[in-house]
Computed example of a mutant assay.
Amino acid sequence: MDPPDSGAESAVADGGGADDKERRYSAPALEKGLDILEFLSECRDPQSLQQIGDGVGRTKGEIFRMVSVLAERGYIERTEGDDRFRVTDRLFRLGLNRPVNRSLVEIALPTMNAFAESTGYACHLAVPSGTQIAVIARVESTSHIGFTVRIGYRQPLILTGSGHCLMAFMSARRRHRLYEELRRDDPWIDLDALTQTLDAVRAAGHVRRPSGISEAVVDLSHPIVDGHEGGAVAALTCPYLRMRNTPQEPEAILEALAQAARRISDALSLD
């Protein structure tokens, strides 16, 4: 039998310890749902009800109704042929509907299309999401061959050109908070080495580095700077592959990318 599962908030009595002061209210049902979503978002493969329960420290009976509701609302989905579950992109799509992201995409897309038309190369727009990048817009190559990533693509900031660009040009305050998150994720991370890398990126004004994900791809990236924010809010990135039939040097692509990033930044600051 399921234990009583109330969605109502319960107040924590005053006069408790430090944890009580930091957390005055609890919503058990909401917390259970968030635990399930966070667990599934970190899993590469779909998970059974038993695996989800083990992952969030609850029994199958405790999570059964919550899993059913999350599936009905479209936040998770059951895979065909078995009773395993995985997260959908519903939460990501909700995030894209935030006015700041919607405005950024609307402003950037015409310039991104112009970049692809003039260079023949694909490009994408990435924003920080915790310690990862999230791609919120893309334009495919106008040639028959190209390399692109899908909207919703996520990777650790430290592995990607977009991530290095975002970290290098974001405000010092945001970078300090990010370093704390990176340290929590990996206590052994060499932040001194990362700082040297980001200093070099800032000195160059852009990112040009071999992809940390794909062989033969070179990440070319320029920051999208919001004057109101005081630092980079996104990275405009081109996955560069040298084409034999229509060779273009990376320097030429970088210059076109820089012009596109400046136009987007200027329009964003006026918005």
Results as ranks from 00 to 15, higher is better:
235 A>F: 06
227 G>F: 03
224 I>M: 01
249 E>S: 13
259 Q>K: 08
234 A>T: 09
259 Q>D: 09
239 P>L: 13
223 P>T: 01
241 L>D: 08
235 A>H: 06
262 R>K: 13
253 I>Q: 06
256 A>K: 05
238 C>R: 09
235 A>K: 03
228 H>G: 03
256 A>R: 03
232 A>D: 03
222 H>A: 04
251 E>P: 10
255 E>V: 07
253 I>R: 00
250 P>D: 03
225 V>A: 02
253 I>E: 05
249 E>H: 13
258 A>L: 07
261 A>N: 05
251 E>G: 05
243 M>F: 15
255 E>P: 00
225 V>R: 03
222 H>C: 00
256 A>L: 08
227 G>T: 03
257 L>G: 07
262 R>G: 08
244 R>G: 07
227 G>N: 02
246 T>S: 11
246 T>C: 07
233 V>L: 06
226 D>Y: 08
227 G>C: 04
256 A>V: 06
261 A>Q: 11
228 H>E: 13
228 H>Y: 05
258 A>R: 15
224 I>Y: 02
229 E>A: 07
224 I>K: 01
242 R>K: 12
235 A>W: 00
259 Q>H: 01
240 Y>L: 02
244 R>A: 04
241 L>H: 08
247 P>E: 13
259 Q>C: 01
250 P>I: 11
257 L>Y: 05
223 P>I: 02
246 T>P: 00
230 G>Y: 14
250 P>A: 02
247 P>L: 12
251 E>R: 12
230 G>Q: 12
243 M>G: 09
224 I>D: 03
228 H>C: 08
248 Q>W: 08
224 I>A: 02
241 L>T: 02
260 A>C: 01
230 G>D: 13
226 D>A: 15
244 R>C: 08
242 R>N: 10
232 A>N: 01
260 A>W: 07
259 Q>F: 00
234 A>F: 01
259 Q>S: 12
247 P>Y: 14
249 E>V: 04
224 I>T: 04
255 E>Q: 09
225 V>N: 04
256 A>C: 13
257 L>P: 02
233 V>F: 02
223 P>Q: 06
251 E>H: 10
261 A>W: 01
232 A>Q: 05
248 Q>S: 11
240 Y>I: 04
258 A>N: 14
257 L>F: 06
236 L>Y: 11
242 R>D: 12
242 R>A: 13
244 R>Q: 15
230 G>R: 13
252 A>N: 08
247 P>R: 12
225 V>F: 10
234 A>K: 03
243 M>E: 14
224 I>Q: 02
252 A>W: 03
261 A>L: 01
246 T>A: 11
240 Y>E: 09
252 A>Y: 10
244 R>S: 14
226 D>G: 11
251 E>T: 15
245 N>I: 15
227 G>L: 00
252 A>D: 07
260 A>S: 15
252 A>P: 00
232 A>M: 06
248 Q>A: 05
231 G>Q: 10
252 A>M: 11
